[in-house]
């Protein structure tokens, strides 16, 4: 069993308490999250899977502070996101969270290295620190030799590795990934999920990944299966 020696931090990095979220379109109101509670620990890759429309992306967006729930609260690194105003949530995200999306969302004008450096510039780091972190993150993602290329010259897998390096260079405690492999072929999807898992283990990062890709399940430390806004099944594979 791979990664069976992973120890999940007993202090959860991310706690969701009684989250409820509904979307209204016209007169129809759909409940996307239904009184959902979950705790997620550090140093592990937690996968949320389930059919499309089950509410997994909404859960990720609320846990990462991109959206607010209708009811309930989120404790991220022991801080309540609901107690913060929009500016403080932004500052929290700047210092503690990384994101990887399905579309790689790289600026066409920037080289791989510049893509990684750009968010670091807003963290008030010294120029040397920015360069050091960017180079390390790119090297860790195996992209050091491609760092002077723009997105147009990179393959899909390479672009996603640059996007992960961009998130990783911030040294976040929380790393969120939304369908990170669904735009990639099998081999590249494999590489990307391995890299995410390695980040969780080597950096002690809380990696929360949303995917409907069944190939990822075998790589996750813990799998939360969702349906109709609730968690149906919680299998803690790493603890076994």
């Amino acid at each position: 069993m791979p990664y069976s020696n992973t120890v999940i931090d007993p202090n959860p990095m991310l706690v969701a308490e009684n989250l409820t979220k509904s979307f209204t379109s016209g007169q129809l109101s759909t409940r996307v999250l239904d009184d959902l509670s979950v705790e997620i620990g550090a140093g592990a890759l937690t996968l949320i899977s389930g059919p499309s429309g089950c509410g997994k992306s909404t859960l990720l967006s609320i846990l990462s502070g991109l959206q607010a729930p209708d009811h309930g609260r989120v404790l991220a690194l022991s801080e309540s996101l609901q107690a913060m105003d929009a500016k403080r949530v932004e500052a929290f995200r700047l210092h503690h969270t990384g994101f990887v999306f399905q579309g790689f969302n790289l600026f066409p004008a920037l080289t791989a290295r510049e893509q990684v450096q750009l968010p670091l510039q807003y963290m008030r780091l010294s120029a040397q620190e920015i360069t050091r972190r960017a180079d390390e993150a790119l090297a860790e993602m195996g992209m050091a030799h491609r760092q002077h290329l723009r997105p147009a010259a990179l393959s899909g897998g390479e672009k996603q590795r640059v996007a992960i390096a961009r998130a990783l260079a911030k040294a976040p405690a929380l790393l969120f990934a939304d369908e990170p492999t669904s735009a990639l072929d099998a081999a590249n999807g494999q590489i990307v999920i391995d890299l995410l898992h390695r980040i969780a283990r080597n950096h002690g990062t809380t990696v929360l990944c949303v995917s409907h890709d069944p190939r990822l399940i075998s790589h996750a430390d813990r799998v939360l299966t969702m349906e109709d806004g609730r968690i149906l099944d919680d299998s803690d594979r790493g603890a076994r």
Binding site: E90, T97, F99, P119
Partner: peptide
């Protein structure tokens, strides 16, 4: 044309003002 890239920067905590 770059709205998703800007949104990603915002997700990473780069403020709307910046």
């Amino acid at each position: 044309a770059s709205v998703n890239e800007y949104a990603t920067l915002n997700a990473l905590g780069v403020g709307k003002r910046s």
